[in-house]
């Protein structure tokens, strides 16, 4: 019962996050909403594991937490440097700021 309550609250919160991702207005608002939805999905997977009585779901939650972090950093790097293979050094940052 308590797991169902937590799952319901998380689903409502994810829906609110989707509204923010739809409204924008900047790309960073959408990335922020996406990151928040990802964090809540990690918890939702863990709660679902308890709800269904299958603790193996915690492994999936752990992997999803890793993917969510790497994904957020990769998207930010892409929009920052316009190149995922960029070294991301201080020199590169100056070049990007010069271009802007």
């Amino acid at each position: 019962m308590m797991f169902a309550a937590a799952a319901a609250a998380l689903i409502v919160a994810i829906f609110l996050g989707l509204i923010r991702a739809y409204l924008g207005p900047t790309i960073y608002d959408r990335i922020l909403a996406g990151n928040m939805i990802g964090t809540m999905t990690v918890i939702l997977i863990a709660v679902h594991g308890f709800l269904a009585g299958r603790p193996e779901f915690l492994d999936i939650a752990l992997v999803y937490a890793l993917i969510n972090f790497i994904g957020t950093i990769a998207i930010l790097k892409y929009f920052r440097f316009k190149d995922l293979g960029h070294a991301g050094t201080d020199k590169g940052r100056e070049e990007v700021e010069d271009d802007a």
Binding site: L10, V12, A13, L16, G17, R20, L32, M36, M40
Partner: peptide
């Protein structure tokens, strides 16, 4: 707190 945070983002 999760709900309050989501409301705050809106």
């Amino acid at each position: 707190f999760v709900l309050i945070g989501a409301i705050g983002v809106i």
